[in-house]
Design a protein around this nucleic acid. Structure first.
Length: 274
DNA sequence: GGCTTTGTTTTATA
DNA sequence: GTATAAAACAAAGC
């Protein structure tokens, strides 16, 4: 699933391939993808506009468009952004096409149609889903161990659901949450208030390092994820617990378990993670 | 055709 | 208002 490292990889690709180009035309084949504003206005506002730069916030992609607009894209589970030659025909899961002034398209491909796009005034993120209420960026300088500890104060919910909560911390999804907890040797069943000082530090370090490794590997291509050029990432080969149910733990050799925690498939080693 | 998948929102409750 | 947990929702693949 596109989580922070996958989205970061896509943003890097967008900077290389679409920044500096003009959107000649927008083709919308599935209107429900456009969440804001109305489809007609969305098309009109983007017509013949320059793509100035691209940023990431959590799992949101922010394309800065000429005229102080930001095109916000959220891929949810199976969304892809792909750059394809205009002459290549659309497949049935290509729902939105931005025709650029260089014989290429930026195409939004989404098997399950859960992804959404929003075109807002830059800085006015209220209409763009949860973008306005995201927690800290885990890889930013502002996100320090002290800050993380402060956030954990007075939280009593289980650590798995807290890490998945985008208002608590932006960018972790099911894959990197399970991987971070494994690296920190913390059980997903633990509640936030039971973590020791050392465990908080280990978790902080694990979150940052697993996300950095994910970015360095170009993301995890377990099922649908591809980068903007249609290539797979490599982090699926480095996973320690996610989708490794029944396989041996790389540290202790015991079987990796899978339970439902916080309503999500949760992979862990019950020997290593306490 | 029911089950599974996950990211996010909604709802209910304390 | 806030924290939490559970349920709902999106839709397609198998």
């Amino acid at each position: 699933m596109p989580e922070l490292p996958e989205v970061e990889t896509i943003v890097t690709g967008l900077r290389e391939l679409v920044v500096g180009h003009i959107i000649n035309k927008v083709i919308i084949r599935e209107e429900k993808i456009i969440a804001f504003p109305e489809v007609k206005e969305f098309e009109k506002e983007l017509y013949e506009k320059d793509i100035i730069s691209v940023d990431r916030r959590g799992k949101y992609i922010l394309l800065r468009i000429e005229g102080n607009k930001t095109l916000v894209v959220h891929l949810r589970m199976t969304g892809r952004l792909l750059v394809k030659p205009q002459k290549l025909e659309y497949d049935k899961h290509t729902h939105v096409i931005f025709k650029l002034n260089n014989d290429f398209d930026l195409r939004f491909h989404n098997v399950r149609k859960f992804g959404r796009m929003y075109l807002v005034d830059s800085g006015d993120y209220g209409p763009a889903g949860g973008l306005a209420t995201l927690g800290p960026e885990p890889l930013s300088d502002a996100f320090t161990l002290e800050e993380f500890k402060k956030q954990l104060k007075n939280r009593r919910t289980n650590i798995k659901s807290l890490l998945l909560n985008q208002k608590f911390l932006a960018g972790l999804g099911n894959i990197y949450t399970d991987e971070a907890l494994f690296r920190a040797k913390i059980s997903p069943y633990r509640t936030a208030d039971t973590l020791t000082e050392n465990e908080k530090m280990d978790l902080y370090t694990a979150i940052r390092s697993v996300l950095k490794s994910g970015v360095d590997s170009g993301g995890t291509s377990f099922s649908d994820y591809l980068n903007i050029k249609g290539e797979k990432g490599n982090f699926q080969n480095k996973l320690k617990v996610y989708q490794r149910e029944g396989k041996k733990c790389s540290i202790c050799g015991h079987e990796i378990k899978k339970d439902k925690v916080a309503g999500r498939g949760t992979h862990y080693c019950s020997t290593c993670q306490k």
